[in-house]
Design a protein around this nucleic acid. Sequence first.
DNA 1: CGGTAGACCTGACCGC
DNA 2: TGCGGTCAGGTCTACC
Length: 273
Amino acid sequence: MPELPEVETICRGIKQKIIGKKILSTKTSDKKLRLPFPENLSSLNSQEIRQVTRRARYILLQTSNNQTLLIHLGMSGKLLYLNQPPINCNKHNHFVINFDDGSCLIYNDPRRFGLVDLLGKEIELHKMIKNLGPEPLSSGFNLQYLKEKLANKKTNIKTAMMDNKIVVGVGNIYVNEALFAAKISPSIVACKLNVNKLGVLVEKIKLILSQAIDLGGSSISDYKNLDGDLGNFQLGFKVYGRENQDCLLCNNKIIRIKQNGRSTFYCQQCQKI
DNA sequence: CGGTAGACCTGACCGC
DNA sequence: TGCGGTCAGGTCTACC
């Protein structure tokens, strides 16, 4: 489910639904996520949701007693907002926030690679957050920054761009798409990329991610539907998932390779350097 | 130290 | 229908 555009879309979606609502109670499943559930979740009871923000792929819910509930969706996590408590409980619902008006927010995650944690005001100090690189759509992610950051990087460019210490939120789908758009081979050693190509890469990452956010915004409109499975994102993929299909630019076949255990899709003709 | 395999999980799908 | 293999949008750890 979630790369940055999806998380951003989910954030925007739940924001308008839950800001100002008062938490009645929370409920966790007996299965643990990537981390065990925090023990002090009951301190959220009777608190109000003040703000919904995002840092990298972490969703941050700030409450009226200055706590921050941190949610990461892992590979398969979803957040669902319901006007009423669910009628039959899905076995992958691992965390539920019940609001005092009867509505609720459900964290559903079959693979349980995600996490829920509760912090005080000092979010930036959290171990998960403090070492993260800049947001890809922020001005801090620019040519000068990336040039310095990759100056001694010996990994391939694809792996480097998925490294959260370099830039956050660029996942396996959009890194493939951005490298294709920039006509850069995913296998090139990061420090070997020339400045021109680096500039194009920065630009394409920003472009692809903002386009995806715009699309996401239009395709996720209803959080009430448990199986309303986000649909439309995939429509615009030019290389991701297109193994053996024709390149949309040159008609060569898109190929698939593995880099660091993840699938990479690209066109050898269009992405030579 | 940087780089990379392995671990964490469930479910869907494919070929036999 | 069942079984084994492979795949999946992420990220932490342990090891070289």
